[in-house]
Simulated scan of single mutants.
Amino acid sequence: MKADLKQIQSPIKSEMAEFELRFKDLMKSRVKLLDHIMNYIVRRKGKQMRPMFVFLSAGVCGDINDSTYRGAALIELLHTATLVHDDVVDDANYRRGFFSVNALWKNKIAVLVGDFLLSRGLLLSIDNDDFHLLKIVSNAVKEMAEGELLQIAKARKLDITEEVYYKIIRQKTASLMASCCSVGASSTASSPEIIEKMREFGEKVGMAFQIKDDLFDYGEEEIGKPVGIDIKEKKMTLPLIFALQKADWLEKRKIIHLIRNKSENKKAVNEVISFVKQSGGLEYAKEVMNRFYDEAMTILQDFPDSEYKESLSSLVTYSIQRKK
């Protein structure tokens, strides 16, 4: 049975409410313009799945405490900073259906806002001697930047193998999910073995999550990101990589030509989408996604039964079955 987010959140309902208040407080600034922008960012927050992963992972491993709140806030601050900077890099005017910071206040201010969020997160950890949490999250931010740059470099040549694709999504997406779960475990003073096991669990979830996101590009769901956006941006995702591996030399050359030279052409994008679907690319990607999902669930089974574990399991299922 598929649970909704409110049901999943029930064991940490009071913690999430408290976290929201603490996070709003952290975002305050004495600079009026910055305070105004921070209020805008807080108002348009998403589903808050990352803090949920932190709190539920902490509950699975031990007792939720002040360090858990700071760990969740650190991840949200640093992640929000990367999103603000990403929108500048991508020249994106929208984020989750709202105007992006750079669309409303221009690039110069957006970059400075990202810097403020980054430094706010660093200071939160340093002021509270949370160096163990800061190390986990800083490593994730480094991995995310490397993953993005690797993807950009490969997009120029369109020569991504399946192995390179896994490396990119492990760095770009899975590293952040892994840090959510390891921060949760680490905040409860768990053993290095338990923290590592939670990190592995989060990484598997992140891999499955990204493949799910890649599948949205092929219009399999009615709601989601715009169809073909990855193809337009020359991003090589798993369904396309698999389809190209199966194709003969002539067909492969034709598809790569379309992506390289006609990615702005709707007809060409639709041709690439049809090619991927007919080659079984979507089925293959779903198989791989489900394999990562199963591996994550197997790791979670090693932890003692609790309401936190049950909700964490449901949250993973929700993230893989989501419609957007």
Rank of each mutant, 00 (worst) to 15 (best):
Q48M: 13
I41V: 15
T161Y: 01
E76L: 07
K108P: 00
A110I: 07
A58S: 13
R50L: 09
E76G: 12
Y40Q: 10
V60M: 10
C61W: 00
H36F: 12
A92R: 02
K108L: 01
F116Y: 05
D66W: 11
I41N: 02
G147R: 00
I136M: 06
G59L: 00
F23A: 09
D86E: 09
H36L: 10
V54F: 03
F98N: 15
A58Q: 03
I37W: 00
G71H: 12
N65R: 15
K157Q: 15
T82A: 14
D129L: 15
A103H: 09
L34K: 06
H85D: 09
D159F: 11
D130Y: 07
D25T: 11
R30G: 02
A92S: 14
L104A: 15
G62T: 04
L133K: 04
L150P: 01
K135A: 13
L117M: 11
K135G: 07
D130W: 00
Q151T: 11
R95P: 09
E143W: 06
G71P: 08
H132A: 14
N128T: 09
A58V: 11
K47F: 12
V111W: 00
L118Y: 15
D87G: 00
I160V: 15
L133C: 14
R44H: 11
K135V: 08
M144R: 08
Q48W: 04
S67M: 12
V111P: 02
D66N: 11
L34V: 15
K106W: 01
D91C: 03
K142E: 08
L134C: 06
L56W: 07
D35W: 11
D35I: 04
G62Q: 05
V88C: 09
L83D: 03
L133T: 08
V113L: 08
H132K: 14
R96F: 14
L134K: 00
I37T: 05
S100A: 06
I126E: 04
L150C: 01
L26D: 05
K106H: 10
V101T: 09
E162H: 04
K135P: 01
M38D: 08
M27L: 15
V54S: 11
V164Y: 11
F98I: 02
V84H: 05
I75Q: 03
V137M: 12
E143A: 12
P51E: 06
L117G: 12
K154H: 12
L124P: 05
F23Y: 07
M27I: 10
G97L: 10
L124G: 14
D86H: 12
Y40M: 03
D91M: 05
S125F: 05
I41Q: 10
R50V: 00
S119M: 09
L34N: 07
E76K: 06
